[in-house]
Amino acid sequence: MIEESILISTGVIGALTTYVLNTRLKLGPIRASTIPSFAIGLLFKLFIMELPNGLSNTIPLVFFGASFAGMTSRRIIDSAPWMMASGAIFGTLFVYSSRFFNGYGGGLGIAACLSIVIVIGIRWLLDKISKMLED
């Protein structure tokens, strides 16, 4: 449970960090994703090598994958809380991922894309419900 919580929180942080760097500091999506991911990867490779259950390898992977969700433009997701939700959904998808596609490149990215599309779906439903309640 603790391990799952750490990974889902990492997803939130990864998505939010990239989103802020991309949309608020205007670094652009590629720099916003690669710079913090490179830094986190290096940090864990050089200094944080002995965490239990392979977390030293898994945390940078989750951060990196969540950073892809954070590359979303403001036209699609225009608020930080929704981006954090997307990061949490990504973390959840990572924790409960399929074994069939284990080792496939792009697996992190497709999970990130899923998290964004799911958030789009959730927002549409909530908009619909709030309009129904107003009427």
Partner: peptide, 11 residues
């Protein structure tokens, strides 16, 4: 503009 698109393509 949707994040993860590049990863989906790579997948």
């Amino acid at each position: 503009g949707e994040g993860g698109k590049l990863g989906t393509i790579a997948f």
